[in-house]
Design a protein around this nucleic acid. Structure first.
Lengths: 192, 192
DNA sequence: GAGGCGGAGTTGGCAATGTCAACATGAGGC
DNA sequence: GCCTCATGTTGACATTGCCAACTCCGCCTC
């Protein structure tokens, strides 16, 4: 049975395959032609759905932001009763951010490189909303400042870990988990 | 007058040209052949000095770390009298880190991607030394923890700014400088 | 100073890739 | 039943990283 001339949903298939390829080998080695071949389609077919390689990569990054935002919110909402201390809940969400980065390093790298896809903005809004919830009654400027400070610390730690710039060997006697907690202390305030 | 057969110091010339090319156009678009042509040398000449493209890029990143470490230490040492409050001096150095990143975004991106060149370790040691000086008498584990927490916040902020993920538009009424200071507050403790 | 060794540079070529233009196919609306 | 046009295909081009084989010439040895 020969493949039908039309694929059905090549766009979605490309996106899915690209996501997998990025997670497996990093975005630098992703080849449009190889992708097309893997889907049993000619080497120029992808251009019917994405203007160029960068456009496909941007779509992959966008999907990544949707997943990251989802992971963040799930951790925030699933972290015990709504009445629990907001600081403790933020800590759970923060660990989810680090977890996402270290479990999908190649995707994470792609997401934070080059022009920001639309989903990035939404993901940031999700971050800010949880920080606002953790600081009831705070002025908007304060919320923005705290959000960015927290995000910076979180993101920097995630990136440095995933690029091997922070290695267990550098920590001396400290276990890696303790390091994470130390970073969270500065990002979110001491756990008390 | 024809070019002499031997270039003289092609290795250094390549490194210099590559550094310039990276700063100008980013490492993704750097082409060995174009580089060679610019130096009036054949397209395979670079392979006499660098095993491959990645090796050249690694050398560029290494040079970048030397400059970053230099900028950090210069800011630390030049920040007023030795007797000045260490926290204030760290703040000056931290601003130098952010300044380096935002003034040479493409180089900075390259430096913190892929395997760490040898200079990265030395640069980190420089960071840690200043933090240790700012925390006289602190246990080594504490110094390490504070260094990494500070570095994470600094680096995350720098990266997010340079990738356009933190834009003035997101800050609302806050001026960008105020945002920097808010991040430094969490990274280094309030300026008081 | 003659000879030759080896680092440095050259030429030519290969395979892969992104991208484009021109052409083919067939699903769905009229 | 026909026609349109989005979706795929074929073929081609320029560029690139990399390798092999060759050439050149500075320097060391005798």
């Amino acid at each position: 049975m020969a493949r039908p001339y039309h694929h059905g949903d090549l766009r979605a298939a490309l996106l899915d395959a690209a996501l997998r390829a990025v997670e497996a080998g990093g975005h630098a080695t992703l080849s449009l032609r190889e992708l097309a071949q893997g889907l049993g389609v000619s080497h120029a077919a992808p251009y019917r759905h994405f203007a160029n390689r960068d456009a496909l990569l941007a779509a992959v990054a966008n999907a990544g932001f949707a997943r990251l935002a989802e992971a963040w919110l799930a951790a925030w909402q699933g972290s015990g009763p709504k009445a629990a201390a907001p600081a403790a809940r933020l800590r759970v969400a923060a660990r989810a951010y680090i977890g996402f980065a270290t479990e999908r390093p190649a995707l994470f790298r792609l997401m934070f490189q080059g022009p920001a896809p639309p989903g990035a903005e939404a993901a940031f809004a999700g971050l800010q909303a949880t920080v606002a919830a953790a600081l009831p009654g705070a002025a908007e400027a304060v919320v923005k400042a705290r959000t960015i400070a927290m995000w910076s610390a979180l993101h920097g730690f995630a990136w440095l870990c995933l690029e091997g710039r922070i290695r267990p060997a550098m920590l001396g006697p400290l276990p890696p988990a303790a390091m994470l907690e130390a970073v969270l202390d500065t990002a979110l305030g001491p756990a008390e």
